[in-house]
Write a protein that binds this DNA or RNA. Sequence first.
DNA 1: TTGTACGCGTTATCAG
DNA 2: CTGATAACGCGTACAA
Lengths: 339, 339
Amino acid sequence: MAQKLTLKKIAQELKVSISTVSKALRDSHEISVETRTKIQEYAKQYNFKPNNIALSLKNQKTKKIGVIIPEIVHHFFATVISGVERVANEKGYQVIICLSGESFDKEVVNMDMLANGSIDGFVMSLSKETMERQDFHHLREVTNQGMPIVMFDRVADDIACDKIIIDDVEAANKATDFLLRKNRRNLGLISTPDYVNVGRLRTQGFKEALMKRGYEIDESAILKVEDIENCGDKIKDFLMTGNYDGLLAVNELFAVTASKALQGMGRKVPDDVAIVAFTDGMLSKYASPTLTTIGQKGEEMGGLAAAKLIQKLESDHQEDETYETVIVKTSLIERESTP
Amino acid sequence: MAQKLTLKKIAQELKVSISTVSKALRDSHEISVETRTKIQEYAKQYNFKPNNIALSLKNQKTKKIGVIIPEIVHHFFATVISGVERVANEKGYQVIICLSGESFDKEVVNMDMLANGSIDGFVMSLSKETMERQDFHHLREVTNQGMPIVMFDRVADDIACDKIIIDDVEAANKATDFLLRKNRRNLGLISTPDYVNVGRLRTQGFKEALMKRGYEIDESAILKVEDIENCGDKIKDFLMTGNYDGLLAVNELFAVTASKALQGMGRKVPDDVAIVAFTDGMLSKYASPTLTTIGQKGEEMGGLAAAKLIQKLESDHQEDETYETVIVKTSLIERESTP
DNA sequence: TTGTACGCGTTATCAG
DNA sequence: CTGATAACGCGTACAA
C-alpha cells in the first residue's frame, strides 16, 4: 500500500534536494556519479515513475490523443481505433476514446471535456445527428484554440483540418461497374439517407456508373434506410417490388440482410442476384455466401489519421496552416456473392 | 486562434486577482455581486473552461478510468467498452483505452503508463499471454499503490480486486444440457487451450453436464484451437473424424466456421448437427442459419465494472479492503442452429 | 556539485 | 469584499 513515490519523497528519504533527485534521474552530469547512482538505485528499487499529470501541466502537452466516434460496436470504427492506437503507441501517445452514440449533444459534451487540457488533438468521425444538422461550431471552437483535428470517414467539408477518407464515389462506381461487367443489368442500391455523406457519395457513384454506360436511373431502385435496427422489413419490401439481378449495399449489414431475405424468397445468391457490399468486416467473411466487398481499410485510415495528427502536433507550432485530404485507395475483395 | 483562456488571463484583463476570478466563477459569496457577474459574463463570452490537467494535479484525481483489453475488434470487448463508457460518462468520468493485443509486454507497458497519474483506476481483461504466463506482478504493483482494479471475463483468481464474470461452468453446463435434451448424444466441443480460463471453465462445464447424465467423456471429442486466424482446417478435420450430432463452441467464430464446414460437407444444421455458441455477437445474428448462443452481456459487464470501480474510487478512501466477484447471469438465446 | 526559485493552472486558506 | 500565498509534481535556469 506504499503510496505513489514522488521526487519529494525520494529527496526527503535520501536527504538531498528535489532538484538533485530530478537531475540525477535524468542522468545530468551536474550531479556526482556517487549521488547519481545512489538516487537512481533507490528510484529503481521503489519503481519510481514520474507523474504524467505533472509533466502534462508543465509541458503543456499531454501526449494523449482523443478519438470521438459514433459507436464502437461497429466493426469499421473498431478497426480504425485499432489503427490509431497502434500508431499512437509507437510514437509514445495514448488514446482516449469517447463515443457520441450518434448524438450531437454527446459529441459536443465529449469534445468540450477533452478539449480542456485532457488531450493534444482529435481524431474523429461525426455523428449522424451532426451530419444532419450541419452544425459544426464545436469543431470550430476547438480548431480556433489551435488544437488540431483529423477527421475520417464522416467529415465536414468546410472545417479546416486534415481529413482521411476513401473515395466513396469512385469506389461505388467501381463496384457498380463490376456488377455491370458481370452482365447484371437490373441493379438495386441499398443506401442511407443523403445527409450521411458516405451514403450520398456512394449513391452518386452508383448513378454515375450507370449513366456512363447510358443506362437510365430508376430512383425506385434506390432504397434509403434510416436506422439499422429494423431494416429487415424495409429491405424485404424493396426486394419484393424490384426484380434485381445485382445489388450494391453501402454496408455489410444491409447486404447480409438482403442476402438472407433473397434466399428466404427462394432466390439464389449469386446466381439470381449478385451482391457487393461496402465495409469489409466479420459478417462479409462469415456470411453464407460470403460477401464480395469494398474494403474500407479502417486500420489503415486510423493509422494515417494518428500519424497525421502527431506530425502536426510535433511540427514546430502552428502557422502550418495547410490541410491535406488523404484519399485511401479501396479494393474490391471478391467472394462468393458475385459470380 | 485565441489561445486557451486561463484564470490568470481573465484576471489580467479585468484587473483583479486570480483568486478573485476563481471564486467568482465558483459563485462564492465572498465576492460582490457586481464583480462576480462581470467576471462570469466575461468567462462565458470567451467560453472559459477550467483546465482539467491542473484540476487533476490539484485534486489528485483525474476522473478518468483506464480500460485495458486484448483487442477491440472482438465484438464482446467492444460491447464491454460501450458499457464502461456509458456508466463512466453518466458519473462524470472519461475512458482511456489501451489494447494489449494479447501481448504480455504491451499489457505491462500500457498499465505502467496509465498508472502514473493518468487515471484513477483500471477496468481490464487479461491478455492470453498473461494468462499463459500467470505473471501478475504488474497488477500487484498497481494495487499496492492503492489504485483499484476491476477485472472482467479473463480474470486472475489470486489478485485482490473486484471481478465481473459469467459463470462459465454453469453456462456451458446449461448449453450442453440443452443439446442433450434435444436428444443429441454425440456431442463435440470446440474450445481454446486450457490456459485461457474461459476455455478451461467452459470445457469443465461441458464435461460435467455429460457426467451428470452418466455419459463417458471422450477427449477426442474436444478440440482445442490455439489461434483464431487459421482455425478453419483444424475444425474441418475435427468434424470429419467425429460424427457429431451436436456441437458446443466457446465463441461464435468457431461456431460459424464449424457450421459452414458442416454445410460444405453436406450436413444440415440443425437437422443433422445442432450448434450452440458462446458470445452473442453479430455473426450469430446474421449467420445462416442464425446461431443459438449463450449471451455474454458485455454491455452489462462493462457497466457493472465501471460502476463498481467508481464506487470504490468515491468511497471515502482505502481500507475498504473487501472485494466482490459479481457473476452475471447468462441466458440461452435460441435461434435456428438448434431444433 | 548541490540547492533555490519559479512556473504550469487551479483551489483553499488565511491575511488584509 | 479582495488579494496574496501555498500546494499538487515536475523540470530547469540560476545562484551558491
